[in-house]
Amino acid sequence: MDQQEQASGDTGGTRIEAFDIARIMQAIPHRYPMLLVDRMVEVVLGESAVGIKNVTANENFFQGHFPSHPVMPGVLIVEAMAQTSGVLVVETLGESARGRLVYFMSIENAKFRRPVVPGDQLRITVTKERQRGNVWKFACVARVDGATVAEATVTAMIVGA
């Protein structure tokens, strides 16, 4: 896949325009059914990222949540935020992050504005608030058709050899 990378004049970070599931799976260890990011549409190394989750009726969690009124569980929306953040961390650190894991440390101020249902496309924006050593903190917002459906602040730690 072609990857367009360019220096970002206003942010100082390197901007990666888009990449697919194969590169996401190189960055983070999650696999079906727990891989909740389908595509990265923008990454500004060290600063922010936008990930996409296409929500389909075939998702396994809809069998029990809820069969007659399928709703994506809020904890999975937050997990998708964390995975998008993890991809940003690994892409930012590059080779030094290969083979390492990114673990959740905290979730703060999680708010859910409206249900996410089959057919929705989550657009997850994560913005680094700070980084100290191997601990990163992100402001996260998930939107569907431009409307905010969830938001949270997540803190994660990158660990491993």
Rank of each mutant, 00 (worst) to 15 (best):
Q83F: 00
I107C: 13
A7E: 14
E79C: 02
T92D: 05
T148P: 08
V78I: 15
A7G: 13
K111M: 12
I24Q: 03
A80T: 04
R114H: 09
A18N: 09
F19Q: 01
L88P: 00
P67A: 03
H30Y: 05
A49E: 02
A27E: 07
K111N: 11
E108L: 14
R123H: 10
R23V: 13
E151L: 09
P118E: 13
V55Q: 02
A152F: 04
V87R: 01
V135S: 00
S96A: 14
P33W: 09
T92N: 03
V154W: 08
E151W: 00
T14V: 14
Q83M: 05
L101R: 11
T125G: 11
V154H: 01
V78Y: 01
Q3F: 14
D2S: 15
H65T: 06
D145C: 05
N58T: 07
F104N: 00
N109M: 09
P70D: 07
T125W: 09
G146Q: 02
I16A: 05
D2E: 13
D120H: 11
P29M: 03
Y32F: 09
M40Q: 08
G13R: 04
D20Y: 06
Q131Y: 04
E129Q: 15
D10N: 15
T148F: 01
F61M: 11
V90A: 06
A156R: 02
D145E: 13
M34H: 12
P73T: 01
A110H: 10
D38C: 01
V50A: 08
V135N: 05
R143E: 15
V44R: 07
V149D: 06
A139G: 06
G160M: 01
